[in-house]
């Protein structure tokens, strides 16, 4: 379904700000699988999702999605296959436009846009019906500007927008991190429902070990632009939040050790 082959991405190459954000990531995702990505800050999780979404082109490597080589596709071309929810609730919706207008745009994700009316009675009715399933009471406010809604409501709507047309791949980058616990729970429950119902192939980044364990069927831990652990099958089924935290500790300890070792070596050899 999704096939990442040796992805490399370096930001600001050849400058003092050079960051090797992805150092040869290879991943293969089956249709309908739900992959959770965890990892320390700056380990390249968002960069990986951006590489798949086409925010930038990768330096080397190949990205195949739904049987098509999309490595050189631009972001808006990939949108035909990819639905996306960002971490920032402000990123996924057009604030001065109404709820109905935002959803009407999402109903054409990746399709040509011409001179047909963006909103008609039928579409508006459908929008109301789908929004009713959110149980947020927003179905009576479809003409209000989205900017007047709370972050949780906006994220729920963004999720609805990203999946209005069933995407080949759904990308979720810490989409509940900016929400209060109650809204986060609500959005996670909705995420679970939608992914289950449509059997969506999903990549989700999270910082919550609880989410990582409760959702999804596979966990990948990233570190320094590489895949460090890949938990699947029986191993994934056994894993508890404490185990994941232990792996983080391991990484941290090795991290602390490394500079000390390096210093030791330097002292004895120079």
């Amino acid at each position: 379904m999704l096939d990442l082959d040796q992805i490399l991405k370096t930001f600001n190459p050849g400058t003092p700000n050079e960051v090797r954000a992805l150092r040869g990531v290879s991943l293969r995702l089956e249709r309908g699988s739900f992959l959770i990505i965890i990892g320390t800050n700056g380990s390249g999780k968002s960069t990986l999702l951006n590489a798949v979404a086409g925010t930038f082109l990768v330096d080397t490597g190949r990205i195949t999605l739904a049987g098509q080589d999309i490595t050189r596709w631009s972001e808006h071309q990939r949108a035909r296959l990819v639905g996306r929810v960002f971490q920032n609730p402000f990123s996924g919706t057009a604030p001065t436009m109404s709820i109905a207008e935002n959803l009407a745009m999402a109903a054409l994700r990746g399709r040509p846009r011409g001179f047909g009316w963006a909103l008609n009675a039928r579409l508006k009715g459908e929008i109301r019906d789908r929004i009713r399933t959110l149980n947020m009471g927003l179905e009576d406010r479809v003409d209000n500007a989205i900017g007047s809604l709370s972050g949780g409501q906006r994220q729920a709507l963004t999720l609805l927008m990203a999946t209005w047309l069933k995407p080949e791949l759904l990308l979720l980058d810490e989409h509940t991190a900016a929400l209060d616990p109650k809204s986060a729970d609500q959005v996670i429950r909705l995420t679970h429902e939608i992914i289950q119902k449509d059997r969506l192939t999903t990549l989700m980044v999270t910082h919550s070990m609880q989410q990582a364990v409760n959702l999804g069927d596979r966990i990948v831990m990233m570190h320094r632009g590489q895949v460090l652990h890949d938990l699947q099958g029986a191993e994934r089924a056994r894993v508890r939040p404490e185990d994941l935290l232990a792996r983080f500790d391991q990484v941290r300890r090795r991290e602390q050790l490394d500079p000390a070792v390096a210093e030791l070596l330097q002292r004895s050899y120079v």
Partner: peptide, 28 residues
């Protein structure tokens, strides 16, 4: 009338939030 069409709506959204409309498949 143009601003009420699919294309015109996308145009207004481009000014409002280019990141969002790009993610919906529109060339900004």
């Amino acid at each position: 009338a143009f601003f009420c069409t699919d294309l015109g709506t996308a145009m207004r959204a481009t000014g409002d939030n280019p990141q969002m409309i790009r993610a919906l498949g529109v060339s900004v």
